[in-house]
Design a protein around this nucleic acid. Structure first.
Length: 814
RNA sequence: GCCGGGAUGGCGGAAUUGGUAGACGCGCCAGCCUUAGGAGCUGGUAGGAGCAAUCCUGUGGAGGUUCGAGUCCUCUUCCCGGCACCA
């Protein structure tokens, strides 16, 4: 028999699957729908890397397993094709993004097919195609129509390198997430989507999701809900009222100063004349700084007196108001009350600028304390030095103070979120055009649906000028005037690519329909997606946006579900010698050479064998040989020794029976283990169980067809091509992937004899074999007979005897 | 600083509820086979002592609970991921 040749075998089965449409799902007819998705890739020129494989191949193994469990599994694949890299490439080379993306998509499709996944290519999507982005634009129109899309002038994050605006969510450590350039602030008119209206619902729905705890926690932090109280402060000698937001209104009697953000709109009006110069100077500095500068310099808090005084709503005292750049305008009210006795930041500021420190609460044992995150969640203690509220428990006092403020119209309960509205405008070319036109007066109007797709013009230059590339297109300008009239102008911004990816789970199911986003019948049947697998880096952007969009579309009446993904799993990271793979480090492993040499099955099994799927693993060039050996051994063993009848020559009949029993027990134990392991996505131990089975089988001189077929089915999710070949070899009919997943029988797991360990005073001192149903008394008696154990028992008395059924006997000496 | 997750042989990692630590694989060592092998096969492989039976020590560190702890509790060190003047 020839050695196993992966390249010809894999090509053979890929062709057969394709010819017979093995993975094309009839969405309408499917009885047992199971929607399995992976996060679709960006078609970059770097092609598929190990990270893609590590996402897609194990996800495919799980999908295959579900299929063998009788589900109609739908596994689509597509391309998140809009985005900056293609545009940057165009700037560099002059090659139009449309062209480079088409090439990349083709290359990656070929590579993806070689993995041998169950993708139904008849239902693919490409977000950069007009037939797709027509729906991206339709989504915008729905948001606009329902009041969730609006324009606002705002100081936005501007990346000087990309020449574009970034959402807060796309800034990492104050730097552009994509290119790493430091972000500066720039005022600009932008389109926003009101995700903040959904903040509470996004939080509430978490409990209905089968998602990693960690991801839910990250989203909770991102949304950042806090309950507190807005307090109104009259400015002394003026009719201006300033609001402060605080989560600890119980400390209001401890306020000795207040701080206002340099960008605050009322700052000018309340400035005392002798302080004006200093404050304006300070503001000029602060505004020039980016958020990171304000944070980085923030170890040392700086501030300047405004000269204004606030009237304390309870004591009537006059509280100095300072301006400081550590107070941000885009969170809360832009004014903070300072309680140096109970807040560390306020204390630092007070010490530096000489404000008094007045205590207003104390801990249960009468000590003073500063609030930190922990205290906020275990609030015990009393209010002190606080007039009518003195003596109350902290929480009660907090409630009463709020009530009094509300009654006097000097404050109110407020729930504050960190989450900000989603800025979706991009001054870029390679994205879906925003379907808006402006009349000669500059008022925005939506483009009627009949004009969708509102096509991206082709005639632009890619030089980054800071103005939107679409503004240069003559064709777009002409088109707009032809349809809407002279003087009308097109919106020249395109949409954030996260918009494109926020609804693709519906478009896979639409089969290209131009009539509706998704048919209601199909939506009811297939949504939510049963399993979604992708990287944890999307925990707070894509995975919040897509939930928001799904909720909104439900509210608009286009969907019946409001959560898109029922179960979510993040794959771990594959490192190279413990280091993250990155282009800059030059340590990226390309799968192609390995797939060429060892085949897709071996490569994907090796990735899965490295460690638990959610933990990732460390790449090693040599380790893959072990998996190659495993594949070769499987092939060699089954092709040489398969026979219809078990035939163990030259052994006594008893021996034969015993051996056969051993194989049966192991076989069923393996079915049990592989099933449980795939269920919990522990492919590494599923593989080691199969290796153990093979190790045992290799000691037998022949193997039955039945065992060989079971082996093929167990292998089918993990090594799809090899399993088909083995199934065929074992005389199986049809595809192995269409077979039922094997069941194990507990009765077959009963062994002829078992080994029981003996401990004396907790230390292992011997072992003995017994019948599986040995009684406790017999087991203890047998344990005491063990030669080595007897040595320890001599001349002592036994205080306690413990028997753990089928496992061990523990003898405790006095 | 805060929130999560980790730490087990030379390496990647096993160990459902506390019950024989190191499965499985890599690497390494010895032997076989081969003209040769970067192929294959057989055996060995946590550390230490011993011819051996066997014994001692061992899951980042220090305590604790228990007949028994990688697993539970307290403290602590280091590593990784996320958030960060959020009022």
């Amino acid at each position: 028999m020839n050695p196993y040749d992966p390249s010809s075998v894999e090509a053979k089965w890929q062709k057969k699957w394709e010819e017979e449409g093995a993975y094309a799902i009839d969405l309408k007819k499917a009885k047992n729908p199971y929607y399995s998705m992976v996060m679709f890739p960006y078609p970059s020129g770097d092609k598929l890397h190990v990270g893609h494989w590590y996402n897609f191949a194990p996800a495919d193994s799980f999908s295959r397993y579900m299929r063998m469990q009788g589900k109609d599994v739908f596994c689509p694949m597509g391309f998140d094709a809009f985005g900056l890299p293609a545009e940057n490439y165009a700037i560099k080379t002059g090659i139009h993004p449309d062209e480079s993306i088409t090439t990349n998509t083709q290359t990656m499709t070929t590579q993806l097919r070689r993995i041998g996944c169950m993708y139904d290519w008849s239902k693919t999507v490409n977000t950069s195609k007009p037939e797709y982005y027509r729906w991206t634009q339709w989504l915008f129109l729905q948001m606009f129509k329902n009041g969730l899309a609006y324009r606002k002038d705002a100081s936005v994050n501007w990346c000087t390198s990309c020449q574009t605006v970034l959402a807060n969510e796309q800034c990492q450590d104050g730097k552009c997430e994509r290119c790493g350039t430091e972000i500066v602030h720039k005022p600009m008119t932008q389109w926003f989507w009101k995700i903040t209206e959904y903040a509470q619902r996004l939080l509430d729905n978490h409990k209905s999701l089968d998602w990693p705890q960690k991801t839910i926690l990250m989203q909770e932090n991102w949304i950042g809900r806090s309950e507190g109280c807005d307090v109104c402060w009259n400015v002394d000698g003026s009719d201006i009222v300033l609001d402060t937001f605080t989560t600890t209104v119980d400390t209001i009697y401890g306020v000795t100063f207040a701080v206002i953000s340099p960008e605050h709109p009322h700052l000018d009006q309340i400035l005392g004349d002798e302080h004006r110069t200093a404050v304006l100077e300070y503001r000029k500095e602060a505004i020039r700084k980016t958020d990171i500068d304000r944070i980085a310099a923030g170890k040392e808090k700086t501030g300047v007196d405004t000269g204004a005084l606030l009237i304390h709503p309870f004591t009537g005292e006059k509280i100095p108001l300072w301006v400081a750049d550590y107070v941000l305008m885009n969170y809360g009210t832009g004014v903070v009350m300072g309680v140096p006795a109970h807040d560390q930041r306020d204390r630092d500021f007070a010490i530096r600028y000489g404000f008094s420190i007045v205590e207003s609460i104390e801990s249960p044992d009468g000590k003073s304390f500063v609030y930190d995150e922990v205290d906020k969640y275990c609030l015990k203690g009393k209010i002190i030095h606080s007039g009518e509220f003195t003596g109350m428990d902290i929480l009660e006092g907090r409630k009463r103070i709020t009530e009094v403020l509300e009654k006097r119209k000097m404050g109110k309960c407020k729930i504050q979120y960190k989450l900000r509205d989603w800025s979706i405008s991009r001054q870029r070319y390679w994205g879906a055009p925003i379907p808006i036109v402006y009349d000669p007066e500059g008022n925005p109007h939506s483009i009627p649906e009949e004009h969708l797709p509102w096509e991206l013009p082709h005639d632009v230059e890619f030089k980054p000028t800071g103005t939107a590339p679409l503004a240069q297109s003559k064709e777009l300008k002409q088109r707009t005037e032809e349809i809407f009239g002279k003087g009308w102008t097109p919106e020249v911004d395109t949409m954030d690519t996260f918009v494109c990816s926020s609804f693709y789970q519906f478009r896979y199911l639409a089969e290209g329909s131009e009539k509706q986003l998704i048919s209601p019948e199909i939506e009811k049947k297939w949504i939510p997606v049963d399993m979604y697998i992708g990287g944890p880096e999307h925990a707070c952007m894509h995975l919040i946006y897509t939930r928001f969009v799904t909720m909104a579309l439900k509210d608009f009446g286009f969907l019946t579900h409001e959560e898109p993904f029922k179960r979510l799993v993040h794959q771990g990271l594959i490192t190279n010698n413990g280091a993250k793979m990155s282009k800059s480090k030059g340590n990226v492993v390309s799968p192609d050479a390995f797939v060429e040499r060892y085949g897709s099955d071996t490569f994907r099994m090796y990735l899965m064998f490295m460690g638990p799927f959610t933990e990732g693993g460390d790449w090693s060039d040599t380790g893959i040989k072990g998996m190659d050996r495993f594949v070769q051994r499987i092939w060699k063993y089954f092709s040489n020794r398969i026979s219809l009848e078990p035939n163990i020559k030259g052994k006594s009949k008893n021996k034969k029976v015993e051996q056969k029993k051993e194989v049966t027990v192991k076989l069923h134990a393996t079915i049990q283990k592989v099933t449980a392991d795939i269920e919990r996505l522990h492919f590494n131990t599923a593989l080691s169980a199969l290796m153990e089975l093979l190790n045992l089988l290799e000691k037998q001189e022949s193997v039955s067809t039945e065992v060989s077929q079971v082996f093929a089915t167990l292998l089918a999710p993990l090594a799809p091509h090899l399993a088909e070949e083995l199934w065929e070899l074992s005389g199986g009919q049809g595809f192995v992937i269409d077979q039922q997943w094997p069941e194990f029988h507990a009765s077959e797991l009963v062994q002829v004899s078992i080994t029981i360990a003996v401990q004396v005073n907790g230390k292992l001192r011997g072992e003995f074999t017994a019948a599986p149903d040995v009684s406790e008394a017999d087991a203890i008696a047998l344990a005491k007979q063990d030669e080595n154990v007897r040595k320890y028992l001599e001349g002592t008395t036994i205080k306690k005897e413990i028997y753990i059924k089928g496992k061990l006997v523990s003898l405790v000496l006095s």
